[in-house]
């Protein structure tokens, strides 16, 4: 495998957590619920995904369990912001703390303090017949683990759902103008609930992927800012699934580049290379915030009895 193919294959793997977390942010944001607990969801997803995989002996079980735990957090966020109209950002931060604490506590309780942490097997790569034989594209896109396929197909499905179906348009209308949506008989509360739940589940799944493809184990802080970067990526992607995938490729490219040049040892100190993804994101946001079409009702809570909101 050539150096380029190898690099691109790594980028595609590194994209997966960004795609899941960012599409989750996008989906709930499209209905007006802005989740800022990503970093916590990723961390908790990583812990749950790792522990369940270890105990059950199946990575699929770990991913599903992480998704369920994420869904539970999403339910709490969506319910208290929709029904009690608590501040989304403050609740999101509270859930972020809870998730961080829960992740570290779960690991401590189940595994304890050990010198050699137990490992789970990394995800198997699936070879798609015929397609995998295409030079460069084959090994990069068609000889990957199933989560890569799920991320890409899921993103395409999400685009089709949001922009090519009536249900998707109704969903988007809730995030743009809930008053109008409500007057047309769209159930604003239930839309916000289910997108909040699915969105958080996707974030936790993004986290569960980390131990299954990189380290084989859970460590505190292993999300390493990916959750925050995913929020930036959602703005960068203009809250549209197709551009989020493209943006994820950019973010993942930066991440892999930083890692590789640390190993390769180019002239500059590796710490400055490691800053690259974050600095690049800051620079990119200068442009992203100009063109991002943010859902008009993002981060706000709908009160149907108010004459003034919407």
């Amino acid at each position: 495998m050539s150096e380029l193919t190898n690099f691109l294959a790594l980028v595609v793997t590194a994209m997966v957590p960004y795609v899941f977390a960012s599409q989750g942010t996008m989906l709930s944001g499209r209905a007006g619920v802005f989740n800022v607990s990503q970093e916590g969801m990723l961390t908790l997803g990583a812990a749950v995904g790792f522990l369940v995989s270890l105990k059950v002996g199946s990575n699929a079980a770990g991913i599903i369990a992480a998704g369920l735990v994420g869904a539970l957090f999403g339910l709490v966020l969506a319910a208290v912001t929709t029904y009690l109209r608590l501040d989304q950002f403050v609740v999101g931060l509270a859930l972020f703390f809870l998730a961080l604490g829960a992740a570290s506590l779960l690991y401590r309780v189940v595994i304890g303090v050990t010198m050699s942490p137990p490992l789970i097997p990394l995800l198997q790569k699936w070879r798609i017949p015929l397609l995998a034989d295409i030079p460069v594209v084959g090994p990069v896109l068609f000889h990957q683990d199933p989560m890569v396929y799920l991320a890409l197909i899921g993103s395409a499905a999400l685009w089709w759902f949001l922009f090519r179906t009536d249900a998707g348009m109704r969903l988007r209308s809730v995030g743009e103008n809930p008053k109008a949506a409500d007057s047309l008989g769209i159930n604003v509360a239930s839309t916000r609930l289910w997108t909040g739940i699915v969105g958080s589940a996707l974030m936790a799944i993004a986290g569960a992927y980390l131990p299954m493809v990189y380290s084989g184990t859970y460590t505190d802080g292993m999300a390493a800012g990916r959750g925050w970067l995913a929020i930036a990526l959602t703005f960068f992607g203009g809250w549209r699934p197709q551009f989020i995938v493209a943006g994820a490729a950019f973010f993942a490219g930066m991440e892999v580049l930083a890692l590789r040049s640390q190993v390769a040892g180019i002239g500059i100190p590796h710490q400055f290379v490691a800053m690259l993804p974050y600095v690049a994101t800051l620079l990119v946001m200068i442009f992203a915030f100009r063109w991002a079409r943010v859902p008009a009702f993002l981060g706000r809570n709908y009160d149907r009895e108010s004459r003034l909101v919407g």
């Binding site: 800022v36 925050w228 929020i231 930036a232 703005f235 974050y278 946001m285 200068i286 915030f289």
Partner: peptide, 11 residues
């Protein structure tokens, strides 16, 4: 540049 300060401070 109207960059959300939540993101910039975290990064």
């Amino acid at each position: 540049f109207h960059i959300n300060e939540i993101l910039s401070t975290v990064l």
